Amino acid sequence: MTGFARAERQAGSLRVRIELKSVNGRGLDMRLRLAPGLDAVEIPLRQMLSKALSRGSVNLVATLDRSGASGSVRVNETTLAAVLAALDDLGRRFEAAPPRLDGILALPGVLEVDDRAGGIDEDERSALILDCAAEAIERLKVARLQEGALIAPVLFDQLDTIAVLVGRAETHPSRGREVIQARLREQLAALGDDTGLPPDRLAQEALLLATKADIREELDRLRAHIAAARKLIAEGGPAGRRLDFLAQEFNREANTLCSKANAVDLTAIGLDLKAVIDQLREQVQNIE
């Protein structure tokens, strides 16, 4: 989700520049910094961003260059009067230093720029800004796709590592009923059990322990998650949210495997799984 893009447009004496910067984010967080007098394009710009992007913290900066323009700046007397009245009311209620003139003039709507003298009216200016923003957004999408192309091999490697660990867990000898039965005998002997547990009862107890320690379902679900994640990455397109969900499911199955493990080596495999899954989750945060 990381990327940077810039686009410029010019009409008459007016030059528009749009800069976009995107960093990782769980959802889509848009922050716009617009030049004075561009309030009318804020909602359309937000709509364009939300339609083109699904995740990331996105900053948009729109600037205007009127160098050489014959446009004029005027004070909106109605807005200024309302601001001064509000300041006067606050001044009577609270003790505070009076506001500076530059601070008052910087408030939205107090100063208005008239570009018509420069050969462009407000509608044309808005269209120019939105056209420029559309180009910048497309460039940002390309930059983010390039980052995703670099991350995809890393994700595939991590999924391959998870698949190897799942295979090791499946073939681990501690899962066999005979091994569990032998361990049960050792535990009874260590407790000083000399009552001579009947073989059929010993087999029943071993079967019960084997059932409780069975991780077949967890391994099957892990394999299913691996296949789903590989398919999402291969298909391309926005997949970050779904991969994030799969990473959570990976972690859930790894936790259950660790809790069911009846051997130190099997627990170690589960911990290795959790470590790789955490790395996968970190990378997934970089994907739209």
Rank of each mutant, 00 (worst) to 15 (best):
A203E: 12
R223Q: 14
P173C: 15
L207Q: 08
G68E: 06
P198V: 00
L207V: 14
R177T: 15
V284Y: 15
V75S: 08
M30Y: 04
P198I: 02
V276E: 14
L20I: 14
R175K: 01
L219D: 09
L90G: 01
A261C: 09
P198C: 08
V166Q: 02
G25C: 11
R168S: 03
L159T: 07
E178V: 12
V164H: 07
N59Q: 10
R116K: 09
R55D: 00
I233N: 09
V276T: 15
E249H: 09
A210G: 11
I277F: 03
G12Q: 01
L87Y: 09
D102V: 02
G192F: 05
Q285W: 04
L165Y: 01
R100I: 14
E178D: 08
V179A: 10
A203G: 08
A97E: 14
A82W: 07
D123C: 00
N76D: 08
D65I: 02
A86M: 05
R93C: 09
A143H: 05
N262E: 04
R92N: 14
F245T: 11
L197V: 06
G192I: 01
V179H: 01
D220S: 03
G237M: 05
E249V: 04
L155Q: 07
G25K: 13
L207F: 11
D65P: 10
L243K: 02
R66G: 15
N255W: 05
K51R: 03
L202H: 03
N59T: 05
L150A: 14
S13A: 15
L165S: 15
I287C: 05
R252Q: 15
A82S: 12
S67K: 06
S70T: 05
L20H: 00
V61Y: 03
T171E: 05
E8A: 14
L222W: 06
I43M: 08
L20Q: 11
L64N: 12
R6N: 06
E218A: 09
G236C: 06
A206Y: 13
L130A: 01
L49I: 15
P44K: 00
F94R: 10
D220A: 11
A35V: 06
V179C: 12
K231Y: 10
E218Q: 06
A224W: 09
A143G: 13
G56S: 08
G91D: 06
I226T: 13
S126Q: 15
F156K: 05
E122K: 08
L159S: 04
I269F: 12
L257N: 15
A52N: 09
L184Q: 07
T63W: 02
C258S: 02
R168G: 03
K51A: 06
A163R: 00
G119K: 15
T2G: 02
K141T: 13
R31T: 11
L111M: 07
I137R: 04
I129N: 01
L246K: 03
L90V: 05
D114Y: 02
V166E: 13
I43E: 13
L188S: 06
D115V: 10
T79I: 10
V61P: 06
R33Q: 04
A228E: 12
G240T: 07
I215F: 07
R252P: 11
P153G: 02
L273V: 12
T78L: 01
V83A: 08
E186Q: 00
D157F: 12
V264L: 12
A261T: 04
P99K: 07
F250V: 10
A234M: 11
P36N: 09
R216V: 10
G25S: 13
R252M: 11
E186L: 03
G12N: 07
K51P: 03
